[in-house]
Each structure stands twice: as C-alpha cells, then as structure tokens.
C-alpha cells in the first residue's frame, strides 16, 4: 500500500474540472487499496505535504500553478515523487508559444503563428504589424491566450475588424497571446502513455462537434455537445502518422508519464499538425485520455497504477543516478 496525495482543485479557472479529475483519481486509488490523502491545493500546500508525508503525489491539477510547473517545482523541493511531467515540460506545454517554438525548432508541423505580449502592443507598437500578420495567416485567424487550458479565451476572427476584440479577450487570460493560422480539418486528440518500453501513443480520439460549432470549453466537458469517436475512423497510414507525430511532440517537449497532444488533420494536405500539448490532460469521466486508454484495454485504475509506478520509478532512477 502506498500513501498517495492527490493534488486537485487549486485556484485556476479550471478548478472545477480539476476537482472532478481528482475525485476520479482518488476513487480509483481507494479501490486499489492505497492510502489516499486529498489535497485541495492552496497556500497550505507545503505544510500539508510536510504533515502528511506522502510516498507519492498524483497531480490532478489543470491550468495555472498545477500544469505550468509551479507545483512540480514545489514537489521537487519538498522531495515528494509526483506523477507526469517535470517542471520544464509543464512550462513548455502550458505556454503554447514556447511549445510551438520548440516544435518548430525540432521540425515538427504546427500552424504558423505570431505571438505578442501585452507590452509589445502597449509600448512597442505591435498593433502596426497586425495587417502584415493577417495577410500572412489568412482569415479566419485564431487568437489564443498563450497559457490557458480548456479552450477558454480562444476566438476565431473571421475578418480584420474582429481581430482587436479577440486579442483583448485573449489578454483576459494571459499577458501573452498568439495569432495562429486557422487549419480546417478533423480534430484529433492523441494521448501518450509511458510504459516499460517507453512512451506509446494510445488510440486516437476524434472530437466531432454537434451542430457545427467549433470545439469549445463547454463541449469539451459535457456529454451530448460533442461526439467523441475512439478509435477515430482514419486509414492506417494517417493513424500511424498522427500517432508518430504525437509521440515526437511528447518527446520534444520533454513530457513524462502521460500527456495528450491535440492535432488537426489538415483537410487540404491530409497531414496532421500539432495545435498544443497538455501536460496534465483532464481525467474526468468525459475526458479524452481515459477514453483512449480504455480503447487500448487499459482501465482507469490500471492507468492510475501505471502512472504511480512511473512516478516512483523516476525518483528511484534519479536517486541511483545521483
């Protein structure tokens, strides 16, 4: 029996989703007869970790603090092994701009983009560059906050007139935004799970929005507004290429344990391209990674167990190496 602290909640906008992920993880751990400590992450996090002395922490946090490396740094400091990616991979995944630069530098496909800080607009006259950007990216332009999960703050600007309001909206979530070329096509989520033989891509989930609406926050967590097909109805070659790309992205970003890579299958080229990677994807009943794991014959409990083993193995390896 292992003493596991499940870290969930926190202060991010995805608090509720995180609580649902955390509750599910806790339930699975209890069924596996582990000693489970639930920690709603707040100002007393370090104190709670000192008091409860868990053998390992399962990080079920999404968004700011939890998914951006902050909590991982604290866990390293306190010396508690933890699940999933380390601080640097978390930082890269959480910041879409960093992630896209890393992918592009590694030669992996990701839609063209330009990123700006609020300062660039306010002090450096970046607004003057907007027409040139819009010309290069074509419309609709996708406007995103650099660091926000769950599709909050993502806007499609169909014309130049709508770009400024979309940028203002995106800056509600972060001090950095990106303008990205819109790729039409099929939306694919490829979850990656580590194992004894290294990371492997799980069956692909395709998100098919009902009623033609794009894949938004509402749809992502609710039954009924988006249909999820797993495994996605793709030819073998496309499946292999999409899975290989997700694995490459996982490695380039330095992920560990598990992650989910969101792709677009470009309608024009037929090739997948990386939109973003989630270092701690949702683990709720409707989340995509658990669905993909199940399609691979891995139950949620088995997934949780494997992820815990990986966390302990990483620490053991580091200890031996040191």
């Amino acid at each position: 029996m292992t003493r596991v602290a499940v870290l969930a909640g926190g202060q991010s906008l995805e608090r509720q989703v995180s609580l649902r992920s955390g509750a599910r993880v806790r339930e699975a751990l209890e069924r596996l007869d582990h000693d489970v400590i639930a920690i709603d992450v707040g100002p007393d996090l370090v104190q709670r970790l000192h008091e409860t002395r868990p053998d390992v922490a399962f990080v079920a946090l999404h968004g700011r603090d939890g998914e951006d490396g902050t909590v991982q740094e604290i866990l390293e400091l306190v010396g508690v092994p933890y699940t999933a990616s380390g601080p640097s991979a978390c930082m890269r995944c959480m910041d879409k701009v960093l992630a896209k630069h890393a992918l592009r530098d590694a030669g992996l496909p990701t839609p063209d983009f330009y990123a700006f800080s609020q300062t660039a607009f306010e002090s450096l006259g970046a607004a003057q560059a907007l027409p040139a950007i819009e010309e290069r990216l074509d419309f609709p332009v996708v406007v995103k906050p650099a660091a926000q999960g769950s599709a909050l703050g993502i806007r499609f600007a169909p014309t130049a007139a709508e770009v400024p309001a979309a940028i203002v909206a995106a800056f509600s979530y972060d001090t950095k935004v990106l303008l990205e070329r819109h790729v039409t096509g099929r939306e694919l989520a490829v979850s990656v799970l580590d194992g004894p033989d290294g990371p492997a891509a799980l069956p692909i989930v395709e998100a098919i929005p009902r009623g033609g609406d794009h894949y938004d926050f509402e749809a992502r967590y609710e039954i009924g507004s988006t249909d999820f097909v797993c495994p996605a109805d793709l030819d073998a070659g496309t499946t292999t290429r999409a899975q290989a790309l997700a694995l490459d992205a996982y490695r380039v970003l330095g992920c560990y344990g598990f992650a989910r890579v969101d792709l677009m299958l470009d309608e024009q080229t037929g090739e997948p391209t990386v939109l973003e990677a989630n270092a701690i994807p949702g683990l709720t009943e409707t989340s995509l990674l658990p669905q993909a794991a199940e399609a691979a014959g891995i139950s949620f409990a088995a997934f949780v167990e494997r992820v815990l083993d990986l966390a302990l193995a990483r620490t053991a390896a580091e200890t031996n190496a040191g």
Binding site: G195, G198, P203, C230, P231, T239, A295
Partner: peptide
C-alpha cells in the same frame, strides 16, 4: 509505437 488500435469491450 502504439499500444493498441483495437477497441475492446
């Protein structure tokens, strides 16, 4: 590599 592409029950 991929783990499995076949959905099971």
């Amino acid at each position: 590599m991929t783990i499995d592409e076949t959905p099971r029950g």
